[in-house]
Simulated assay, not measured.
Amino acid sequence: MLLVIVIATALLLATIVVHGAAVMLLYNCGARPLGNAGNLSPLSRLGWSYFFVLGFVVAHLIEIMIWALAYRLTGELQDLEEAIYFSAITFATIGYGDVTLVGKWRLASALEGVNGILLFGWTTAFLFKVSAVLWFGQATTDDS
């Protein structure tokens, strides 16, 4: 059981690093338009909103794949499609129950659910701030 906790913690940390890199990359790409949001057309604002949302979708897909590959490589799930499906519904805390893990690996899936909640929360906070800047004229921290 200790090995499972160590592996799950490493996976959790890996996904946090991926998410942090995504936040930095997306912010660096969008810093200039965010700093000049008042001069953007509504269509440009929408385009930048799409950019940030799609960037986080890609980040979450990578994070889901990290967990899926771990389930597959440990032999817990027999094929990659099943591992991706299980990881996605676990990461999103949907948990249909049609695919489950057995024994000690159930703890890893619980940690994946916690991981998903945290990273979706981080995404939500970032998108909320971006939306406030793009659509409601709130200043970025650089402007304050």
Results as ranks from 00 to 15, higher is better:
Gly38Val: 03
Ser109His: 03
Leu127Phe: 12
Leu34Trp: 05
Gly20Glu: 11
Val99Asp: 07
Val133Leu: 05
Asp79Met: 04
Thr141Val: 14
Ala108Arg: 01
Ile5Phe: 10
Val18Pro: 02
Asn36Cys: 04
Glu76His: 02
Leu61Phe: 15
Glu76Ser: 04
Val114Cys: 13
Leu73Cys: 06
Ala92Ile: 00
Gly30Arg: 07
Ile117Ser: 14
Lys129Val: 07
Gly121Cys: 11
Ala21Cys: 09
Ile64Trp: 01
Ala139Tyr: 04
Ala110Trp: 08
Thr123Gln: 15
Leu80Ser: 12
Asn39Val: 08
Leu111Ile: 15
Ala88Lys: 02
Arg45Trp: 03
Tyr71Ser: 00
Glu63Ser: 14
Leu3His: 12
Leu34Glu: 03
Trp48Val: 02
Ile84Thr: 09
Leu134Gln: 01
Glu82Phe: 08
Gly116Arg: 02
Val102Ile: 11
Ile62Phe: 14
Gly121Tyr: 05
Val99His: 11
Thr90Arg: 01
Leu3Pro: 06
Met65Asp: 08
Glu81Phe: 12
Gly75Ile: 11
Glu82Tyr: 09
Tyr27Pro: 01
Pro33Leu: 02
Ala92Cys: 13
Leu25Pro: 02
Asn28Ala: 15
Phe120Glu: 06
Met65Glu: 10
Leu40Gly: 12
Thr124Asp: 06
Ile62Met: 09
Val23Ser: 05
Gln138Thr: 12
Val130Lys: 06
Leu46Asn: 08
Ile94Asn: 11
Tyr96Pro: 05
Leu73Asn: 14
Ala37Asn: 02
Met1Asp: 07
Val133Ala: 12
Val23Ala: 11
Leu12Lys: 03
Gly20Thr: 05
His19Lys: 04
Gly116His: 03
Leu118Gly: 00
Leu107Val: 13
Phe56Gln: 00
Val57Gly: 07
Met24His: 14
Asp142Gly: 01
Phe136Tyr: 10
Leu101Met: 09
Gly30Tyr: 05
Asp143Ala: 14
Tyr96Leu: 14
Gly38Cys: 06
Lys104Glu: 15
Leu34His: 04
Leu127Met: 14
Ile94Leu: 14
Leu69Cys: 13
Trp135Asp: 02
Arg32Gly: 09
Val6Asn: 07
Leu34Lys: 03
Phe52Arg: 05
Leu80Asn: 07
Gly137His: 06
Tyr50Phe: 14
Ile66Ala: 11
Leu3Arg: 09
Val99Cys: 08
Leu101Glu: 09
Phe56Leu: 03
Leu111Glu: 04
Ile7Val: 15
Phe56His: 04
Leu73Trp: 15
Ala68Met: 10
Thr15Asp: 12
Ser41Thr: 15
Ala110His: 04
Ser87Thr: 03
Trp135Ala: 01
Ala22Cys: 11
Phe86Arg: 00
Asp143Gln: 15
Ile89Val: 15
Ala68Leu: 08
Arg72Asp: 07
Ala37Ile: 00
Val6Ala: 10
Thr15Gln: 10
Ala70His: 04
Tyr50His: 12
Asp142Arg: 11
Ala132Gln: 13
Gly55Trp: 02
Gly97Asn: 03
Ala31Glu: 14
Leu40Tyr: 13
Val6Pro: 00
Phe126Glu: 11
Leu127Gly: 08
Leu111Cys: 04
Leu43Asn: 12
